[in-house]
């Protein structure tokens, strides 16, 4: 062994600079999900926490099944928003699932709640619908499916906190007018169809005024008795 030592040392001497040069030219992008989803950061924040733009939602901590359904719907064009449709067009189910699981696992801080600009009456109407619904008009409370803490439920029901009023009313409007749809039976289309424009504004105002939840996690699958059947929340 010993007699090879000088030779080995000599080889190592020559090998080192070559290795160093190679590692410099072959520096690789980080092999992490965070690096892979940097494309999402300008609109959704580096950790999916949301940005100052009121129309782009927080992704972090929403149940993976919900995020996955949205990613698939954007990829296949059922949920329309051209920048999202474009980015996801040629990605596989497996990869979209990993992206969904990644954002579902993150718990960045919530943004400070926006001081409400709406009247006390509007906020009170919003609170009523969120917590108790409007039995007279057949509207179930949001909390029945999205949880008393509004953190959502696995696998397919999203949390409702950390979102801006503009985004929430935009989505409820989309459900009402049929531009946003989900798997049948499409329970959100039914619920949103029962809301008036005033109701939508009130719900959006109330939800966006809520402080960050003490426990930012979603309810386990099947833990909430849902008042109606939803295609995206299979029993």
């Amino acid at each position: 062994m010993d007699r090879f030592l000088p030779l080995t040392a000599l080889l190592a001497l020559f090998a080192l600079p070559i290795d160093a040069a190679q590692s410099q030219t072959t520096e690789r992008a980080p092999d992490t999900m965070a690096a892979r989803v940097l494309a999402c950061a300008p609109c959704h924040g580096a950790e999916g926490e949301g940005t100052s733009d009121a129309y782009f939602p927080r992704l972090a901590g929403k149940p993976a099944g919900y995020l996955y359904n949205q990613l698939i719907a954007f990829r296949d064009g059922r949920r329309r928003y051209p920048p999202m449709n474009y980015l996801l067009e040629f990605q596989t189910d497996d990869y979209l699932k990993k992206i969904a699981e990644y954002f579902a696992s993150l718990r960045p801080a919530f943004p400070p709640p926006v001081p409400p600009v709406d009247s006390k009456e509007v906020l009170a109407r919003g609170e009523q619908i969120v917590k108790n619904g409007d039995p007279q008009h057949g509207i179930p409370p949001c909390s029945a499916c999205h949880g008393p803490a509004l953190g959502g439920m696995e696998p397919g029901i999203p949390g409702l906190l950390g979102l801006r009023a503009a985004y929430i009313s935009g989505q409820l409007g989309g459900w009402r007018y049929g531009t946003r749809t989900a798997f049948a039976p499409d329970c959100m289309q039914i619920v949103a169809g029962l809301l008036t424009e005033v109701d939508v504004k009130a719900v959006a105002a109330y939800l966006s005024s809520r402080p960050a939840p003490a426990d930012p996690s979603f309810a386990p699958r099947g833990s909430l008795p849902m008042p109606l059947e939803c295609g995206s929340e299979p029993h």
Binding site: R36, L38, A39, P42, P83, L87, F90, T92, D94
Partner: peptide, 24 residues
């Protein structure tokens, strides 16, 4: 403006993406 992802393929199943800068 638009950013973009290379396609997800068997040889590169989880591509890195380029952010869009249209709004920034």
């Amino acid at each position: 403006l638009n950013g973009g992802y290379p396609p997800g393929t068997s040889g590169n199943p989880m591509p890195h993406g380029m952010p869009p800068f249209a709004q920034k």
